[in-house]
Computed example of a mutant assay.
Amino acid sequence: MPDTMSPEAAQALMPVLRETIREAASLALPYFRVGAQTRARTWSKAGGSPVTEADVTVDAFLKVRLSQIVPAAAWLSEETRDDPIRLGHDLVWIVDPIDGTRAFLSGHPDWSIAVALLSGGDPLIGFVHAPAGERFYEAVAGSGATCNGEPIAVSARGALTEARVTGPKPMFDRLTRGVARAGADPAFVQIERVPSLALRVARVAEGSIDVGLVSKDARDWDLAAADLILREAGGTVCDLSGRPTSYNRPEPVHGELLALPNTLRDVAVAAMA
């Protein structure tokens, strides 16, 4: 398979990719216990973030299976040592085997498996699967976004007043001050923070959250799949200047970001200034 892919070719891969991600979920679910600590062995990575045998098992499975499906694609994931060879590839898999590991550890259902295929630095295919919540989000560039096979779209809200907002408190407070500074009463509905960043963005795409706030240091694997789903649903993941997110850079790390409908981007950027 050449190191490039058309949207039509990407669409043709969706059934096998969908089945692969469901199989990956079946490897993780036996370790997950709703409302209780995981059955999986757990340890800490450099920097102190947790990892479980479920993360490693799913990562290894997806690396083998996805590399078989698209052999020309390079690889970047949270649980695999970064190989700079990816920088010379048009096609790159971006994978988070379990996004929201702390939620998975503690029995909170808001964790997900996030898989994206980049082409030329932009997401071409995106999946965010939340097995415990039975939500399966997916998109192909130019073809719209779905959840459990049904089309989804961002909320139609045209102003920030009374918006449903989730994310870190410092960013929430800054957004509140910015809207008030412009002479409006924010009256935000504060949504409990979603542990999985990919799932947080996907919920903006489905319209159940209006604004998702993202603190700095998110990685490509947290964002790429959900970013495409949001784009295809009528929204964007952008920085605080309104610039869209870019991927597969030498350092796949991001600053503070907003995930929101396109109709709210300019007013939210102005409020965060």
Rank of each mutant, 00 (worst) to 15 (best):
I113R: 04
F104V: 07
P109S: 09
L117C: 05
A130R: 01
I113N: 09
D122W: 13
L117R: 04
G121H: 01
L118R: 07
A114E: 14
G121Y: 00
F104C: 08
A132W: 11
G126A: 09
V115Y: 13
V128W: 03
D110Y: 08
G133A: 03
L118Q: 07
A103Y: 07
H108R: 14
H108V: 15
P109V: 07
I125H: 03
F127Y: 15
A116G: 05
P123M: 07
G133F: 00
F127N: 04
I125F: 08
A103F: 08
P109T: 08
D122A: 14
S112W: 12
V128A: 09
A132G: 01
P131I: 00
D110G: 13
S112F: 12
P123H: 04
A114G: 13
G133D: 08
A114Y: 00
W111S: 09
G107N: 06
V128H: 03
A103I: 12
G120K: 08
L124N: 04
L118P: 06
L117I: 03
V115T: 12
H108I: 14
S119A: 14
S112T: 15
L117W: 11
L124A: 02
S106W: 01
A114L: 10
S106G: 14
E134G: 05
A130G: 11
H129A: 12
L118V: 06
A116R: 02
V115E: 05
S106P: 02
G121A: 02
A132L: 07
L117V: 03
S112I: 12
A130K: 01
I125L: 13
S112E: 11
G107P: 02
V128K: 02
P123E: 05
E134Q: 15
W111Y: 13
H108Q: 14
G126M: 07
A116Y: 00
I113A: 11
D110L: 07
S119I: 00
G126W: 03
S119Y: 00
G120T: 09
A114R: 04
V115I: 12
G133P: 00
F104W: 11
L118D: 04
S112H: 12
G107D: 05
H129E: 13
P123V: 06
A130W: 00
A114D: 15
L118G: 10
G121K: 01
P131C: 01
H129W: 05
G126T: 08
P131D: 00
G120Q: 09
L117N: 03
P109F: 12
S106V: 07
V128T: 10
G126E: 07
F104E: 07
A114W: 01
L117F: 11
H129V: 10
A116V: 03
G107K: 09
G126P: 00
G120M: 11
H108S: 12
G120C: 07
E134A: 15
G121M: 01
G133Q: 13
L118I: 06
A103D: 11
A114S: 15
S112Q: 12
